[in-house]
Every structure is written in structure tokens, then in C-alpha cells.
Amino acid sequence: MKYFKPDFALHHFSDITPKWLERYNIKTIFSDLDSTLAIHNKLGDKEVEQWIEMLREEKVTLVIVSNNNQSRVDKFCNPYQIHGYGHCNKPTVTEIQKHMRTVGATKETSLFLGDQVFTDVWCGKRLGMKTGLVAPIGAEHEPIQIKVKRKVENIIRKFW
């Protein structure tokens, strides 16, 4: 069960503030995209834009790691000029380890942020990073397979 329990249960990505980053010595955030930073298959809003700007000011690198296709990731990342990788095959770690090397990240100063226990939290744990689980954004817009997975996740959470 320890591989499915996040280090931090957050309501929203914006709970990560400059003081929070400093307290936990976070220099790189590897974040899921859909339902973590934006509604599934939608672009980011003003709030995510402001958060990304805050990360820049704090010299924290944001890297999007998604199981979605590269086109979806590029559509989100390009306007913000941030790193983004699709087809990451979470919870496997091989692709993300490559991306860690590309951006010069270390597990000790990285956070894996996401909205799903079985992909994001488990992947971050396997990488040896701190993990943060957020409540999903726009859950009503998610595909059916994600909705089913969330029901199983709710059972797992009862054992925390």
C-alpha cells in the first residue's frame, strides 16, 4: 500500500506555493496534464498560467509527463514554453528517467504531481521522488476508463 499513498495530499496544484517549494526543497516538478493541471483535453486557464509563472520566478522547472499523445502535450506546453512529453507509459519509469536526465533533475529535489494513484503516485514512488496527489480537475469530462479506475482508487484510499 505504501506505493499508492502520496507523500502530499493536495486539493489543487495551486497549493504548491513558493514557501511550500522551499520547505520541501523542490527544484523540478514532473506533472501529469489531464485532470491535474487542466480539464481533460482542454488548454490551461489563467490560474495554471499564473502558477507556471510563479514556478519560473522560483526557478523551478516544470516538466509535463503524460500518457496522452504528444500532440495533446504540445498543444498545452508550447504556449507556456515548458518541457512536455507524451506517451510516457506511466507507471513504468523508463521514459521518465530519460526525461529526468534531459532536464538535469534529481529524485531528491523532484516532485511527481498527478491526480491518479495507479499511474502518477505509483510512478513517482518507483522513481524515488516525493509525490503529490491532487483532486481531479473537471472529473465530469473524463473518459469512462478513468472514472472506473477512480472507483478502485477510492477503495485503496480507505486503507491509508
Rank of each mutant, 00 (worst) to 15 (best):
T17F: 14
G124D: 01
E95N: 12
K125H: 06
S35L: 11
N41I: 05
E140R: 04
N68P: 10
F112V: 04
V65E: 03
Y85N: 06
L33E: 12
L33T: 09
K19V: 09
A105E: 03
E58N: 14
H12M: 01
D34C: 09
L111A: 02
V121S: 01
V65W: 05
E47H: 07
I29M: 03
F30Y: 08
G132L: 01
I156F: 15
I156P: 07
K90N: 11
T92S: 12
G114D: 11
G138T: 04
Q116N: 02
G104H: 14
Y85W: 03
T61W: 10
I39L: 11
M1D: 10
T61Q: 14
Y24Q: 00
I144W: 14
N154G: 13
S110V: 05
R157H: 12
I96H: 04
T131V: 06
P143Q: 08
D32S: 06
F4C: 06
N41D: 12
C123A: 08
D32K: 02
H11C: 09
E140N: 07
H12S: 15
A9V: 04
I155P: 06
N25C: 08
Q97N: 10
T94N: 14
K42I: 10
R157Q: 14
K151D: 03
K2V: 09
R56D: 15
N68W: 12
K125R: 06
L33S: 09
L55S: 07
G84N: 03
N78A: 07
T17A: 04
Q145H: 15
F118N: 11
R56S: 15
A9N: 12
N89H: 10
Y85Q: 06
N89R: 11
P91W: 00
I156C: 10
A105P: 06
T36E: 07
R157G: 14
E108N: 13
G114F: 00
S31Q: 07
N41Y: 15
L133M: 01
L55D: 06
G104I: 10
V152N: 02
